[in-house]
Design a protein around this nucleic acid. Sequence first.
DNA 1: CTAAAATGTGTAACCGGTTACATGTGGTAG
DNA 2: CTACCACATGTAACCGGTTACACATTTTAG
Lengths: 358, 358
Amino acid sequence: MTKITARQIAAQTGVSIATVSRTINNNGYVHADVRARIEAAMRDLGYLPNQAARNLATGRTRTVGLVLQTLHSPAFVDMTEAIQMTLREKGYFLLMCNTQFNQQIETDYLRLVQSGMLDGMITNAINDTATEMRQLVQQNYPIVFINRSLSGIEGQPTRTGFVQMDLQHATFLATDYLAGLGHRRIGVMTGDMQLSTQQRRLGGYREALQARGIEFDPLLVRAVAVNRHEAVEAGQLAPKNANALHEATVQATGEFLTAIPDVSALIVIYHTMLPGVLQAIRQMGRRVPHDLSLIAFSDFPMAPFLDPPLTVVAQPSTEMGHKAADMLVALIEQPSQPAQHVLLKPELIVRQSCKPYP
Amino acid sequence: MTKITARQIAAQTGVSIATVSRTINNNGYVHADVRARIEAAMRDLGYLPNQAARNLATGRTRTVGLVLQTLHSPAFVDMTEAIQMTLREKGYFLLMCNTQFNQQIETDYLRLVQSGMLDGMITNAINDTATEMRQLVQQNYPIVFINRSLSGIEGQPTRTGFVQMDLQHATFLATDYLAGLGHRRIGVMTGDMQLSTQQRRLGGYREALQARGIEFDPLLVRAVAVNRHEAVEAGQLAPKNANALHEATVQATGEFLTAIPDVSALIVIYHTMLPGVLQAIRQMGRRVPHDLSLIAFSDFPMAPFLDPPLTVVAQPSTEMGHKAADMLVALIEQPSQPAQHVLLKPELIVRQSCKPYP
DNA sequence: CTAAAATGTGTAACCGGTTACATGTGGTAG
DNA sequence: CTACCACATGTAACCGGTTACACATTTTAG
C-alpha cells in the first residue's frame, strides 16, 4: 500500500513532474521517447494519479450524482443503467443515491454538488417546494430533472435540463383505453399529491374522461401518501419504509374498493404500489380482469407472466436515461443557456388484465 | 456560483483558517463564542468546505464503491439499498456501478480504489481469476466480497471480508424439496460456470440428490453463458446485453427441455434468467406446475402474483447488505486483520409452482 | 540566412483544506 | 510564588497533482 506519486515517477525517469503530468493528461508537448519512458515507469511501479489532488487542482471531479427515490422500480433500474453506461462513455463516474423518500437525504446530496464533490446531478427526487434545489439552480450548478418540472426559471440562462415522459399522455392512454372498453368508473391509485407530476397525470385522466363524456369524480382518485415527510418523521429506513408502503397500499386499496364498489377498472400509477394493490384485490376475492380491469405503469420483464398478464403503459426508460446523461454532460461542459426540454412518449402495451365492461 | 472558501470565513470572522477548520471538524479547542461566530458566518455565506481539498489533505474520501453486475435482480436492489442506508448512518457515500458483466468496467472501478477516490469497496462482480483483484487485496485495500470467495489469502492479515449466503444450502433446499415431492430428473438452469460460486451451488444439488439416492446426471445442468467475456467482445452495453441474455435463455431452455423431455422439475439459479425460462416453457406449451415444477432463486414482490405463484429460495439480501457495509467500514477504520466471514442462511418459500411427481 | 513558429522541458504558484507545532493566556496544585 | 496544565489561537508545512510562464532548442517559412 505504498503510495506511488508523480514525483517518484519523475525522479525515476529523470524529468520534472510537469512532464509527467503532461504525459498523464496527454496535453502540452512531450517528446515521444520521454513519454514512452514515463509510461513504462508508471506501468512498472503501478502508478495511478491521486484523484483527490486532480480534483482539487482542476476543480472538477468527473463524477455526477443520481438521486432517485427508490430502485424498486424496473423503470428506474433501466434508467440507472442507461445513465451509467452513457456517462462511462463520456468519462464520468456515477455516485448513486436512493433517498427512500427521505428529504434529508436529498438535501445532503445537493450539498455534495455545492461542495465540489459532484460536477452535476440527475434527479427525480425533488419536491418542487425544495428551496434548496432552487438555490442550486440559481447558482448555476448543472442539474437534470427527470419527470419533474421547476417553475420560475423559464428563459433564464441556467444549467438546467428536463427529461420527461409525457405523463399526461400516459394517463390519457390508460384512461382512454379503459373508457373505450366501456368502463365509466375508473379508479386511480397514486402517491404523493404534492408532486408537480400529479397535476399532469391527473390532467391526462381528466382529458380522456372528458373526451368520452364521463364526469370526473375526485373520489375515484386515491393517493397513498407514504411520502418523504412521514418517512422522515417516523425515522424509517429502507426496508421498513418499503413495508410501510406495502401495508399502506393494501389497506388503502381495500378501503377504496369497499367504499366505491362500482369501480370497474383501476389504474396504478406507481410500480412500487403494484404488489400491494394486487394483494388487496386478491384478499377481497375480486378477480382481474373479470371483476376488475387493471392497468399499471412501467413495463417489467415479469409482467407477461403475472396472473393475468398485465396491461401496462411503458416508459421509454432506457432512452430517458441516455438523454438525461447526454444532457447533463453537455450542461457541465458548456456555458449556461436556457433550459433544455426533452419529452418522450409512453406506449400502451395491451395484455390481458383488462376486459370490456359487461 | 462564487465559491466561498474557509479563508473568507476566517477573514469575515477575524480568525485564522486553522480555527475555522477546527470548528468545521469539531476537533481541537475553539472558544464557544468564536465557534458561534464562525458557524454564523458559514451559514450566512452558505459556505460548504471543498471536498476535494479535504480528501487530499486527509487521504480519505468517506466514499466507498459498490460494484455489482446488474440491478435487474430484486435481491441486488434490496442489498444496494441496505448498504447505502448503513453507510449513510456511518457517514459514508456510495459510488455505485453495474458492470453489465463487462470485466473492463470492473477493472476500472478497482483502479478507483487505488487512485484514492474510494476508501474501499463492496463487490460481487469479480471473477476469481482476476489478478487485479488479488493485487488490490494484497495491497491491503479494504474490500468486502459478496457471495464470492478468494483463495490463497487464508490467515494473512488483509483488509478483506466476505459476506455470503450459504449457496450450497440454497440449492440443497430447492433440490431436496423437489426430490421430496418425488422428482428424480431435476434440471438446473444456471450461468457462467467459471465462477467460484457454481461449485458450491452444484455441491448443494449433488448433496441433496445423493441423500435421496438419486444419481447425478451432468446433462441436467445447463449453463447459459452470456458472460462478461462475450459481452465485452461483442461490445454490448446494458440493454442489448439484457436482451441477449433473454434470447439466449429462451433458446437454451427450449433446447434443454426438448433434449431431455423427462425433466419434471427445474431450478432457476439466476433471477435475470427467469423471464426467459418462463417464456420458453410457455412457448413449448408446458404448464407449471402440472407439466413442470419450478423453483427460482431470490424472492421478489411480484412472485406471489405470478401464474402460478412462484416457489423460491429467498436470500437475506437486506441483512447481507447491512453486514457488508458494517464490515467494510470496520475494515476501513481499523488496522488489517485476518479476513472475516459472514455466512447467512437462505430460506425456502413454498408457493404453488411445484407439485408432486405423478 | 534569419525571424517566426513549433516543440520540449523545468520552475513555481496554486487548488482549499488539515494539522503539527509554537506561542500565549489563565487557573490550580504544591 | 512557581510550575504545570488546560485552553485558545495562529503560523506554516503539507497533501499530490495542474498549469501559466519562462526559457531553450529545433523547424519552418520567406
